[in-house]
Design a protein around this nucleic acid. Structure first.
Length: 269
DNA sequence: CCTTAGTCCTGCATGC
DNA sequence: TGCATGCAGGACTAAG
C-alpha cells in the first residue's frame, strides 16, 4: 500500500527517466482507473511533454507542456513499471508510450488506483493538508486541533496531513508512546511535540530504506523496499514488543486494523 | 461534528 | 481437492 515514502521512492525513480519525454500514446484497459472520458485523456495527454514530476501526499503529479496536470494515486496495489518487452501484464490498467522507446505501465491488481487530469497546477489537490515532513509544521497543525477524534483517525485524514497511511500512523504512534484511540485534544503538548518529531523521522527513514514492501508492492525498477525489517508494530499482532516484550495488540478503528503495545502506548482518555 | 457501514476490487489464507 | 468465507484497506459517499 504505497504511502508517502513509497510514492516518494517511486517519484525519485521516475523523474530522471520521464522528465522532458513526450507522451506519444496512451492506452486505457480499465475505465475506472480514469476520471473523465477516454477522449479527454487522449486529447490532453497525447503529444505533451512531461515538464515536471513530483509527489504531493500520496499522489504522483505530472506537469505537462500544455500546463495541465496529471495525477496518479496508487490506491492499495498500484505499481508503475518500465516495461521494455511486449509482455502483457494481467493487471495492466493503463499504458504510456513515451518518446525514446520508453513504456510505462500502470498495473493495479485491486483497481483502487485512480488517475486524474487537472485544469492547472493551481487547482491541484487543494483539499490536502500540509506535507508531514517537517516537525514544526506538524506540531503547528496538530496543536490547534480541538477535535475529540481518535489520534490515529486524525493522522489518516489526508485533509489534516497528507501522505500518512496505516503503516506509518501505527509506527509513529508507537514511537511517540501514544495509544491510537487517544482523543486528539486530550494529548498534552509534550506528547504532541514528540509525535510531531517522530512522524518525519519514521517517514524519512522509510524513504532511506526505499519504502516498505508488503506482498505485492514493487518499485518501478521491480526491486523491493526493505523498510519492513524495521517495523515495530504494523502487522506484528501477537508478537513481542521490541521495547518491553508485551504482546502487540490489534484492534479495529475506522474499519482499519491498528497495531500497538498497550504498555508502551497507554490510553489517555 | 463524528462514526459506522457500504462501495469498489483481487488474491491469498483459512476451514470444512 | 475444492469450495465458501473472511480479510487486507484508500478514498469516497450515505445514513444515523
Amino acid at each position: 500500500m504505497p504511502e508517502l515514502p513509497e510514492v516518494e521512492t517511486i517519484v525519485n525513480q521516475l523523474t530522471p527517466v520521464l522528465s522532458g519525454k513526450k507522451i506519444k500514446r496512451i492506452k486505457i484497459f480499465w475505465k475506472r482507473s480514469i476520471q473523465g472520458d477516454e477522449d479527454e485523456y487522449k486529447r490532453t495527454l497525447e503529444g505533451q511533454t512531461i515538464m515536471n514530476v513530483w509527489r504531493r501526499g500520496k499522489y504522483i503529479c505530472f506537469l505537462l507542456g500544455n500546463r495541465k496536470c496529471f495525477t496518479i494515486h496508487m490506491g492499495m496495489s498500484g505499481k508503475l513499471i518500465f516495461n521494455e518487452d511486449k509482455h502483457f501484464h494481467k493487471h495492466l490498467r493503463m499504458e504510456f508510450d513515451l518518446s525514446h522507446h520508453i513504456r510505462l505501465d500502470f498495473i493495479d491488481m485491486r483497481k483502487f488506483g485512480k488517475t486524474r487530469i487537472w485544469k492547472s497546477e493551481k487547482e491541484l489537490l487543494t483539499q490536502l493538508g500540509p506535507e508531514p515532513l517537517d516537525s514544526q509544521n506538524i506540531y503547528r497543525t496538530l496543536r490547534k486541533l480541538k477535535t475529540r477524534r481518535a489520534i490515529k483517525s486524525v493522522l489518516l485524514d489526508q485533509k489534516i496531513l497528507a501522505g500518512i497511511g496505516n503503516i506509518y500512523a501505527d509506527e509513529s504512534l508507537f514511537r511517540a508512546g501514544i495509544h491510537p484511540l487517544s482523543s486528539a485534544c486530550q494529548i498534552d503538548s509534550k506528547k504532541m511535540k514528540r509525535l510531531s518529531q517522530e512522524i518525519p523521522q519514521v517517514l524519512a527513514s522509510a524513504i532511506q530504506n526505499i519504502g516498505t514492501t508488503i506482498s505485492q508492492y514493487r518499485l518501478p525498477n521491480q526491486l523491493l523496499g526493505k523498510n519492513q525489517q524495521f517495523l515495530n508494530v504494523y502487522g506484528l499482532a501477537d508478537k513481542a514488543c521490541v521495547k518491553c516484550r508485551t504482546r502487540i495488540k490489534r484492534i479495529r478503528l475506522n474499519g482499519r486494523s491498528s497495531h500497538f503495545c498497550s504498555k508502551c502506548q497507554p490510553i489517555l482518555e
